[in-house]
Write a protein that binds this DNA or RNA. Structure first.
Lengths: 253, 253
DNA sequence: CGTTTTATTGAATGACGTCAATCACTGTGG
DNA sequence: CCACAGTGATTGACGTCATTCAATAAAACG
């Protein structure tokens, strides 16, 4: 999915949802996208707890997850990083990481140094502003996940996660109609939703039985997004997609 | 608790955990603490979803909560605001609020305008840096809550919340030995922990039966904080209290 | 002081977890 | 190309933790 789209477009396309970028901004984005490309396989760690922050990561392809452990090994994915996502532009302020970042699928990232970042944003206030805005949206998502984990039932929770991922992928230009790649395992989905893999399996089957999702070959098809949103009690407010008056239901993707 | 401490000290004391403030910084803090004082009673809203952001709030006394609703009325508190906490210094970037902030007890806040904030921080980079740091800690706390809600059992979850609140209060100078005011209801605790009030009641009783907490007259007593931390699988890493090499177990409070 | 909110208790229900076995898929190397 | 190992998905039976409902007692508040 998203074939024929150059990697740099993933970031540009997303940021242009928030603001209008100049050609210089776009060039800077492109430069960021090209810095230090790295590949990971699923389950490889990108960043470990206790590490000194070294890079900002830009996701070019695949999914990553931010996660935390309990001492006995229980693990919670606290956020997804999808193509076009930038993780932690403020990271250098922290002395050490309090969590892990790992690949949830085959993953391609750009490693951005502090210097790269400063170079890219120094003379491009719009770009900096857009990136900054993006981090505020990320914290809004983090809050929504607390609501998801604390209040929604298993079915609602999984439906909500799927809606959110799909819409974020659509913003990044990684959907085709009502389809998208779905590279992550049910185990990862379980760790993100605070459920067991067994129950996630049953829940996905329940969603499929209601005709809300179709899964085939690591591809997700959502026949009726509105219906899925309703099942997940999903509203996109918290994604703040309408900054420039553009709306989530415009027919893109 | 915390009697004899002037309100401005709540903020100063907390920030000095992160950095060393000059007298000018402290004066600026004091000014912030004095701007537009407002009082609320428990359950009153401070900020509503959909509002245009108008003020930054500094908590002077009492507890507030950030919360989100599901359409059917289920409610999740996604963060606590305790004395000395500042809520959302970046808030003016957002077009509208995607959540509520409400008083969880009698509450005293300072309403800080954009102008107040800029005045206070313009010539005080240390202060700005400390406030900025504080917001990073707030997002780290938000992540920890996802872990709490997603993975911890009821007992662990409540124990963890209590540990976190107690230590944050201690940083703000609002504890006396191993005691602190505990002004919030079990209902609020339930909404924060994703449990029912009934089960919170039973869980608190279980903690009390194990000698981990004692509750009397809206005052919390923690006979053995280490033991409670262990019950809640609590480690303070994510609060990043050791920025300047100061440690959580230094005998303060 | 009366009214409302909060806390407690018990019993019954239900959602999700656990365990264990089986099956399907993916990637790897011979 | 096939065999194999390892991971992931599925299924059923059963267990349990937390919810729900309802009734009562105790605080908090105006």
């Amino acid at each position: 999915m998203g074939d024929g789209i150059t990697v740099s477009n993933v970031l540009i396309r997303k940021l242009e949802r928030y603001t209008r970028l100049s050609q210089v901004d776009r060039d800077a984005c492109h430069a960021l996208s090209c810095s230090r490309p790295r590949h990971y396989r699923a389950k490889e760690d990108v960043v470990r707890e206790g590490d000194r922050p070294e890079f900002i990561y830009l996701i070019l392809d695949g999914w990553a997850g931010r996660y935390k452990y309990l001492p006995d090994g229980r693990r919670q994915i606290v956020s997804f990083f999808l193509p076009g996502d930038i993780c932690d532009i403020n990271i250098f302020v922290l002395r050490e990481m309090d969590h892990f970042v790992g690949a949830l699928s085959r993953l391609k990232v750009a490693q951005i140094t502090r210097g790269d970042f400063e170079t890219a944003t120094l003379d491009n206030p719009r770009l900096l502003q857009a990136l900054y805005w993006d981090t505020l949206v990320a914290t809004a998502i983090q809050r929504e996940w607390a609501l998801n984990l604390g209040q929604r039932s298993a079915l609602e929770r999984v439906a909500h996660l799927i809606c959110e991922a799909f819409i974020r992928l659509r913003v990044a230009g990684r959907t085709v109609g009502n389809r998208c790649d779905w590279p992550i395992t049910q185990i990862a989905l379980a760790e993100a939703s605070g459920l067991t893999p067994v129950h996630v399996s049953r829940t996905l089957q329940a969603l499929a039985a209601q005709g809300l999702i179709e899964m085939e070959n690591r591809t997700l098809h959502i026949p009726d997004l509105d219906a899925l949103m309703q099942a997940g009690l999903f509203t996109a407010h918290y994604l703040h997609l309408d900054h420039e008056g553009r709306h989530i239901d415009s027919n893109e993707g």
